[in-house]
Computed example of a mutant assay.
Amino acid sequence: MLQRLHEKQVIDALTRQAGVVLLGPRQVGKTTLALDLAETRDAVYLDMERRADRQILQEPDLYLDEQMGRLVIIDEVQLMPDLFGALRGQIDRRRRAGHRTGQFLLLGSAATTLLQQTAESLAGRVSYQELTPFMVPEIDAGDMTSLWLRGGFPDSFLAASDADSLRWREDFIRTYLERDIPAFGLRIPAEALRRFWTMLAHGQGGLLNAAKLAGNLGVSGQTVARYLDLLVDLLLVRRLQPWHANAGKRLVKSPKVYIRDAGLTHALLGIETTENLLGHPVVGGSWEGFCIENLITAAPQGTEASFYRSSAGAEIDLLLKLPDGTLWAIEVKRTTTPKVTRGFHIAADDLAADRRILVYAGPREVPGQGGVRAMPLAAAIAALSG
């Protein structure tokens, strides 16, 4: 079993707060991580997809009062929104009894929905953590191409073959569309949402053109916005916003859209092998999305991510504003030539970027022109997380 880097973050958060909300898409490993933690302490696990466990919490205070002092793990907690008010009272009672930290671990698969449910009830009482699919620092260095091809969902990445991995991802997509999304109470035609998701895969990393998507799907712009909001909410798609602080430039205002897991991008497009991927038109956008997702995940908590593109053609693939205020300008290219475009230099100068990095396919760190440093993805991740 691969060690999850997020596990230490969750443990640290439990030592500081009464509760932790662990967010992540289904099948990403939240339950496995939680059960691993449960083995190291006095804990109880409840799954809100199981009728018997839901019945246990029909009168939550009666049950939870008996568990005082134990870590209570509640899986798929967004399925019982009425529970959050009771959890607030439980946390406050436990604090008065001297149990101030490590009381609740709440697992959820829908980010915005869950955050809205907990924002008022548990404000100041819980820490929010996100569990992503496997990222580069969690695997062996020689497996990066496989991680890019298959994506980081554990069952996909660890499959016996590329064919088995692709079948798992195809089943995952089908199950999400036909069972999981309806389970959230959302009535969206599975076939229409799959077509939309596939269109995003074809345009991986492109600017959002809602009107074009709506025309191709035969739906309204509002419907496209609803579909996109849903996939973002389920932590399956990233909407990367444009940089907006430079009022003196005419900047692109549309966000860029990425399917967050590269393996899902490839499954939606029917790409099974590395050879298929390298010969596919999406290869550049796929690699860019893979790198950007890893870099954002590696950045310190509180980092603001965006991109920069002016009407004059100055462009930066990824801007990271770190909590200390430093600005990192990052270009991503699947090339062995450590050279960026003139537009990158112009944009980095406009923004007075503190660090200028080219993530490229070469094996070594090398200095470039204009203060740019070219480096492999793993080195860029190490620089951010160090």
Rank of each mutant, 00 (worst) to 15 (best):
G24S: 05
K249M: 07
D180M: 07
G124E: 04
T101V: 15
K8S: 10
D180A: 07
L122A: 11
D143H: 03
R169E: 04
L377V: 00
T223M: 07
P376G: 04
P338M: 04
N276C: 08
G284P: 05
P60V: 05
P81I: 02
P363Q: 00
Q222Y: 12
R194L: 14
D53V: 05
R179Q: 13
R364S: 05
L193K: 13
S254L: 06
L322R: 14
I139K: 02
L268C: 10
A192I: 15
G205H: 03
P60I: 01
P300E: 04
R226A: 02
S127D: 13
L322I: 12
L264A: 05
A298V: 04
R167S: 14
A353R: 07
P281G: 01
G289Y: 01
Y227I: 01
V224E: 02
T113I: 13
S220D: 00
P338F: 00
M135W: 10
A160L: 06
D47E: 11
L166M: 15
A190H: 11
Q58D: 14
A192N: 13
E7V: 09
Q222R: 11
G362L: 01
R355G: 00
L235A: 10
Y128D: 12
L177H: 03
Y227Q: 02
D143T: 02
T40V: 09
L208A: 09
T132G: 08
I188W: 09
Q116V: 12
A163N: 15
T15F: 13
A183E: 13
G85I: 08
G203M: 11
S254M: 06
D65E: 10
S311W: 15
A119V: 09
G302N: 02
F196A: 07
F184N: 11
A192M: 15
M80P: 08
L320Y: 05
D36S: 13
D317H: 01
Y176W: 14
G215S: 14
E293V: 04
R364E: 04
R238H: 00
D180T: 10
R239N: 00
E288Y: 00
Q116W: 10
P137G: 04
D324Q: 06
F172S: 06
N246H: 15
L46S: 03
T198R: 14
R41Y: 06
P25A: 09
L87A: 07
A192E: 15
A38R: 02
P242M: 03
Y63L: 06
G284I: 03
P182D: 08
R125T: 09
R334V: 00
A379E: 15
I73D: 05
K30A: 00
R54G: 04
I259Y: 11
L62A: 14
A192L: 15
L23T: 06
Q222D: 12
Q90C: 10
Y360K: 00
T274K: 11
G218W: 05
M199F: 15
D180Y: 06
F344T: 00
G248L: 05
A123M: 09
K8G: 04
V219H: 04
A119P: 10
L46P: 06
D65K: 10
L318S: 06
L62E: 08
L46M: 10
R239S: 06
Q222L: 14
S220V: 03
L166K: 05
A160S: 12
G371F: 04
